Computed example of a mutant assay.
Amino acid sequence: MPLKAPETAPTATIAFQRLLIIMDDLRDNCPWDKKQTLESLRHLTIEETYELSDAILGDDKQEIKKELGDIMLHLVFYSKIASETNDFNITDVLNGVCDKLINRHPHIYGDVEVKNEEDVKRNWEQIKLKEGNKSVLGGVPSSLPALVKASRIQEKARGVGFDWEEKNQVWAKVEEEMQEFKNEFNAEDETTIDHEKAEGEFGDLLFSLINYARFININPENALEKTNQKFIKRFQYLELKAKEHGKQLQDMSLAEMDIFWNEAKKL
């Protein structure tokens, strides 16, 4: 006999309880859900996070809502699995994050005074060190994509006062790194270069550009992804127009492709 599904809930508290009940039902009765482990869910959670990111960049509110639900399910799923081995449960997870937020916001739940956002960030990092973090950078996940990791490293360092004072200083560093990168090869000819050294200088250049982006309040990950999407849209237009003219891209000259590319830029 099929189980009776819990009805749509009128409040957040009851809705969350509804999700917990459904999770219990699935874990007990669904062959796929019963098989899952913390490790098997990991890559799926990463995928769901990227799908949420796509929805946010696309400013699709309904899709954002759906993806948030998927991620919420994963959080409940991990907690359910851990509860089965008595490691922790969803109540422990929720109380843990509540306790952390209270402890790290002494300007709200204590007598600490702050003047601005920078004071809040500075206090946050100092509190984390008191909680046992051996390094300010210890909270940056090793598996983060390099672009995101560079941003987080710089934000963490800024939180304890290790930062440039003016954005013109940062731009000077960008120009310095650009020159050092250019010095590793001559773009005018095919001179053999020290690939490892050039790679290092290129990394330094990217790091300095990400640093400058932070100073002018640009999220480099968002900026690059928007450029990726812009390129995809224009390239797919190029493919479409080539097909309409009975041509294959590989058989077209760059000048021919540029005609359609410039059309795409005007859309």
Results as ranks from 00 to 15, higher is better:
Q248N: 04
N29I: 11
K233H: 13
V148M: 09
A187S: 11
L249T: 04
K130Y: 14
I64W: 02
E67C: 01
V93G: 00
K173T: 12
M72T: 11
T192Q: 08
S83I: 00
L254I: 10
E190V: 02
E166G: 09
I102T: 05
T45P: 09
I64N: 02
Q179L: 09
P145G: 04
D25P: 14
A223M: 03
A223D: 06
Y212S: 00
K265G: 15
I218K: 03
S53A: 06
K130W: 05
P2D: 01
P106N: 00
L68V: 14
G96S: 01
L94G: 09
K115N: 13
N123S: 15
N116Y: 12
S40A: 03
A150S: 12
L41Y: 02
K100E: 11
K265A: 09
F215H: 06
Q229S: 09
L75R: 01
E176T: 06
E47R: 05
N222Q: 06
F235I: 15
Y50F: 11
Y109I: 00
E48Y: 01
Q62G: 12
G161P: 03
A146V: 15
K247E: 05
L209Y: 09
G203V: 10
K266D: 02
L209F: 15
C30L: 12
W261H: 02
V136C: 00
Q154E: 09
I102K: 05
N123D: 07
K182E: 12
V120L: 07
I64M: 03
K34Y: 03
H107F: 11
E244M: 04
G110E: 03
N219E: 07
F185D: 05
N86I: 14
L240H: 14
V170Y: 14
K115P: 07
R214V: 04
L254A: 08
E175W: 08
M1D: 07
I90R: 00
W164F: 09
E51H: 02
I56T: 13
F185W: 15
E165Q: 13
I102N: 07
K241Y: 15
K4F: 11
F181G: 02
Y212P: 07
A150Y: 06
I22M: 04
S142N: 15
T45W: 07
F16V: 06
T8I: 10
T49Q: 03
A12H: 08
L137W: 02
Q250L: 10
E196F: 13
G69D: 03
S143H: 13
M178N: 08
E131Q: 11
E48P: 00
S151G: 10
G132D: 01
K128R: 12
